[in-house]
């Protein structure tokens, strides 16, 4: 029987160790296959997260719980990932197009004389292989990626694209511990913490983004308030990043982040092509702008023309009332 190895990631953002939503999406997706399923977890959270995996029908869970793996080091991660692959011998390895996945998978794929497809939005499982649908040219077209004589197929899926299901039940996986090597050429000297405790833009399911229409940096507070009510991550257009209002890690678009949340609210963003390139894959787009001719409205699902300084606080209040009733 064909076998799949899942590369799973954990988060402790809520105060307790959990699998990331994107990892639950991968677990959900592979339930559609009749394949043998195994998974890999790295870092000191691994054992705590293992309990959550007991009902997902995994036959084996490879774990390296060394605390040095709490920080991503390409060298140590590649070594431990390769060890898991040699033990598991899967046909397909599935992970998330996350900061770590995007850096790690290609290197290990090359090591195994194999290829990698990233940014997948849908999988088609056939025989012992998989075809992956993905956007190209900033979502201006879509293509299907097929593997050719690759001994292992490495696949990275975008967050928020695969349907979540409840864990189907089953017995807990057998845990296999992996060894740990000391890195020879790469040392992580320091972690500089970010300012935001929110989900990264690339993983957020709801994003509120601001542009020049906000007039000055201090007015991003309006978006923070709206974001807090919605549980959204706040993003920004390139214009306001280049103006120094907000840091670059908040930039959505070309030379920033490519995002595809369920809901994207663009506030005071005209919709330059570089911005549209990074967010047009969003499921529902709301545009709020004073200029009825702004290009953003051509990409939007819902458009609101008016004064954002009146509309955004009204919207925050309205969301607060609606979400309180849930």
């Amino acid at each position: 029987m064909a076998k799949i190895l899942l590369y799973l990631e954990t988060t402790a953002a809520s105060g307790k160790v959990q699998l990331k939503r994107s990892s639950l999406e991968l677990l959900s997706e592979v339930q559609r296959t009749g394949w043998t399923k195994e998974a890999l977890l790295l870092g000191s959270h691994a054992e705590a997260a293992a309990a959550e995996l007991s009902a997902w029908g995994l036959s084996a869970l490879y774990v390296a719980g060394d605390a040095s793996l709490d920080l991503y080091n390409p060298e140590t991660y590649a070594a431990v990932f390769a060890e898991a692959l040699e033990k598991s011998k899967p046909q397909v390895v599935l992970g998330t197009s996350s900061s770590t996945g995007r850096d790690l998978f290609p290197r290990v794929a090359a090591h195994f004389q194999s290829g990698v497809i990233s940014d997948g939005v849908a999988c088609e499982w056939t025989g012992d292989t998989v075809k992956i649908r993905k956007p190209m040219y900033s979502g201006k077209c879509f293509v299907t990626g097929e593997f050719l004589n690759a001994p292992v197929k490495f696949v990275l899926m975008r967050p928020n694209q695969l349907a979540l299901i409840a864990a189907p039940g089953g017995s807990a996986p057998q845990i296999q511990k992996l060894g740990m090597q000391t890195p020879l050429k790469t040392v992580i000297k320091e972690l500089v913490k970010g300012t935001s405790e929110k989900l990264d833009l690339t993983e957020a399911n709801v994003i509120v983004s601001g542009g020049r229409g906000l007039k000055e940096a201090a007015n991003f507070k309006l978006l923070q308030d709206l974001g807090d009510v919605l549980g959204a991550t706040v993003g920004a257009s390139r214009a306001v990043v280049d103006a120094g209002w907000v840091p670059h890690n908040m930039q959505v678009g070309q030379t920033g982040k490519t995002v595809a949340p369920s809901l994207y609210i663009a506030v005071g963003i005209s919709g330059a092509i570089q911005h549209l390139a990074g967010m047009s894959g969003s499921k529902v787009i709301v545009a709020i702008n004073s200029d009825a001719n702004a290009p953003i409205f051509q990409k939007a699902t819902y458009g609101v023309v008016g004064d954002l300084f009146q509309i955004v606080p009204a919207l925050t209040e309205e969301f607060r009332k609606t979400l309180a009733h849930h």
């Binding site: 920080l71 991503y72 080091n73 996350s98 900061s99 790469t186 040392v187 992580i188 000297k189 320091e190 972690l191 500089v192 913490k193 970010g194 300012t195 935001s196 405790e197 929110k198 989900l199 990264d200 690339t202 993983e203 840091p247 890690n249 908040m250």
Partner: peptide
């Protein structure tokens, strides 16, 4: 992720 940086 989240605006954090690693010094490598």
């Amino acid at each position: 992720e989240g605006g954090a940086k690693e010094v490598v």
